[in-house]
């Protein structure tokens, strides 16, 4: 049986991890290999690196980061953040990323999804969708949640699937950063609508939130940042808890 994936997200700037630094006894704060390795050891099923670097020149450092991580951490990882072109995707995959996550560029140029999935295989093309509830509907936002679009989230996600995305990373902006639990209605609705895996993100602030998510929806995984970074909850503790409540998770990792 396929297990539910628990995925920590690490923010990266100029090749250094800027969030996810609160491990005890880890001296090299910011080192993606050390931190990624640490998370892998604790049972992370995948890693997501979100490159918040603004400039193109600094993108080179992200390529080096990917190369370092790929040479030393042997679980899958995704890189996202400002990816706009086939050329960039190619460069990031060649450096060793298993998947790339595209967000704003997919909205501005949907053909990027179809072209990328045809060229590199849909399994490595993740489309990240940021949504906010407005009246009775979910609307799609881009540019890190700063720009509202005309897109209805449900329609956009169906289109994304049709264009060949391999996975949806769906963030509820209403819940993101609130630690108030996942938006169950949203994930239930989207997950039942599409055949590709859906990863939930936004609102996971306690282990009970993850249990609620996996008991009430059939999403493939959950992504979270601060809850893991600041030591409120380790991935190991979360997985023990989920396992104890009959949620299928991968538990035997090297301890």
């Amino acid at each position: 049986m396929l297990t539910k994936r628990i995925i920590p997200c690490l923010d990266v700037k100029n090749g250094k991890v800027v969030k996810g630094i609160n491990f005890q006894n880890v001296k090299e704060v910011g080192n993606p290999v050390v931190l990624g390795g640490k998370y892998a050891q604790m049972g992370a099923d995948e890693l997501v690196f979100l490159d918040i670097t603004a400039t193109q020149e600094a993108r080179d450092t992200a390529v080096n980061l990917i190369r370092d991580v790929a040479e030393n951490v042997f679980i899958p990882f995704t890189i996202g953040g400002g990816i706009r072109s086939i050329g960039e995707i190619k460069r990031l995959l060649e450096a060793g990323a298993d998947k790339v996550s595209i967000n704003s560029a997919a909205v501005l140029n949907p053909a990027l999804i179809s072209e990328a999935s045809r060229k590199f295989g849909s399994q490595c093309i993740v489309v990240a969708v940021d949504v906010k509830r407005i009246a009775d509907k979910w609307k799609v936002f881009i540019s890190g949640g700063t720009r509202e679009t005309d897109l209805d989230a449900m329609k956009w996600i169906q289109k994304v699937e049709k264009l060949g995305a391999g996975e949806i990373l769906l963030t509820s902006m209403d819940r993101d950063g609130t630690s108030s639990g996942f938006d169950i209605d949203l994930y239930k609705q989207v997950n039942e609508m599409v055949d590709i895996p859906v990863i939930a993100s936004g609102g996971g602030g306690a282990k009970e939130h993850f249990l609620e998510l996996f008991e009430r929806t059939d999403v493939s995984g959950a992504l979270a940042a601060s809850i893991f970074h600041y030591g409120n909850l380790t991935i190991r503790q979360l997985k023990d808890f989920l396992d104890g409540n009959n949620v299928p998770v991968r538990k035997e990792v090297d301890r």
Partner: peptide, 24 residues
């Protein structure tokens, strides 16, 4: 869900090079 993405259990036969466990 298709693709089948994630960690799944491999039940390995006892005398093989593979050990039973979760693989990606």
């Amino acid at each position: 869900k298709v693709p089948h993405i994630g960690w799944n259990w491999v039940e390995a036969s006892s005398n093989s090079l593979i050990e039973s466990g979760y693989y990606y």
